[in-house]
Amino acid sequence: MLRIALTMLLGDKAKYLGIVTAIALSSVIMIQQPAMLADMLAQTTGAITDIGLPDIWVMDPSVRSAEENRALRDTQLHRVRGVRGVDWAVPFFRGGQKVRLEDGETTQAQLKGLDDATLIGGPPGMVQGRLEDLRIPDAVVVDEAGAKGRLAVRLPQGGTRPLGVGDVLELNERRAVVVGVARSTPSFMSQPVLFTTYTRAKTYAVSERKLLSFVLAKARLGEAPEAVARRIERETGLKAYSSEEFKEVSLEHILKHTNMLMNLGFVVLIGFAVGAAVTGQVFYNFTLDNLRHFGVLKAMGASDAALTGMILVQALLAGFVGFGLGAGASVLQVAAAAGGMGPQPKITWHILAGSGAAVLLIVCLAALVSIRKVRRLEPGAVFKP
């Protein structure tokens, strides 16, 4: 019976391809949109993830996410260092800065100032140069995405090349020499990221009165970061989170105060609805075209359970092939976009499992409509003139 079911399905190539195409397109939408959301959320917490050594972040009480910036006075650093359970604490600056390129073009970038002595707060990896070279006068390190994108150098003969070691930028009318290119998580606004020392960052941002964006601290051995963070809050009046707490707070803020989840979720819902409608319609028409075959099998003694199994096999096969094509196309698109500018969708097994379950529901709903038609079929109806 299963062999007959497959012969019926593959024999009608037009409708088989129609079902597979509808499921594949629906799968692409249901994979791509959550993958985009995963990338956006990863960018939201990317600064926390990249800086792995500190386990406590201290900030102004009004800060609600890692993307916000409410500067503190430098004296707050010493107050944090004096709290029991804090092993060490270093300053960290982050702020927007206009960058002028060698050809006179300007762009907005994110400037990060690292502790002068330890360079804690720097990028997780280097593509060119060394992070220690930031101690050279006027030195900055540029993130890889920014070096290839908005900060790329325009060539006289046309075209561009990535910004590299030795190139010169201008920040707030001050010279900045690129000494390295770093690998880091892109910022939420997809701006280039520049790294320099904390002291030098203050000279680039002289127009600001308060310049201490965050205090990065480490709990002493045997002390829970969460407990030390609560102690910092009680003794300084500042807000303090462990790294994991800060990630959760940042994600919660983004999801609650933006339409990101609603907009992407609506697109996924539309993809599911359209996929279910088109697949159901084409599969139902396929069943109607083969209704006489089902009637003959029923007249020969085939049970309703056997016919139901045939329809389910047909639907599941089409769903499996369609989902495979959709998932494959999504993965190829992500691979092609890897390393380039703009969003980088992140396809995880959770996304594939969720979209696969949605496709399974689509084909089951499509099969259910056809099953009801076949089960109500009178065997003698196909022999009537």
Rank of each mutant, 00 (worst) to 15 (best):
L2D: 08
L2P: 02
L6Q: 12
G18Y: 05
Q33E: 10
M36I: 09
M40Q: 12
L41K: 13
T45C: 06
T49Q: 13
D55E: 04
I56D: 08
W57D: 01
M59K: 05
M59H: 02
A66E: 11
A66T: 02
E67S: 09
T75D: 11
R79E: 13
G85H: 09
G85T: 07
Q97L: 00
D103R: 09
L111P: 06
G113M: 05
G129W: 09
D133P: 06
P137S: 09
V140Y: 03
A147E: 03
K148C: 04
A152L: 06
R154I: 07
L155M: 13
T160P: 02
T160N: 10
L163P: 01
L163H: 02
G164H: 08
G164R: 11
L169Q: 03
A176K: 01
V179H: 03
P186G: 14
S187T: 15
S190A: 13
R200Q: 07
A201I: 06
E208Y: 08
L221K: 06
E226F: 05
R234W: 00
S243F: 09
E245A: 14
V249T: 12
S250F: 12
H253M: 02
N259R: 08
L261Q: 14
N263G: 04
V274T: 09
V274Y: 07
A276S: 10
A276H: 04
A277P: 06
T279A: 14
D289K: 14
M310K: 03
A318P: 12
A318Q: 15
A318G: 15
G324D: 11
A329V: 15
A329F: 13
A336S: 13
A337V: 13
M341K: 12
G342I: 15
Q344R: 14
K346G: 01
I347V: 15
G356E: 04
A357P: 12
V359K: 09
I362A: 03
V363W: 08
I371E: 00
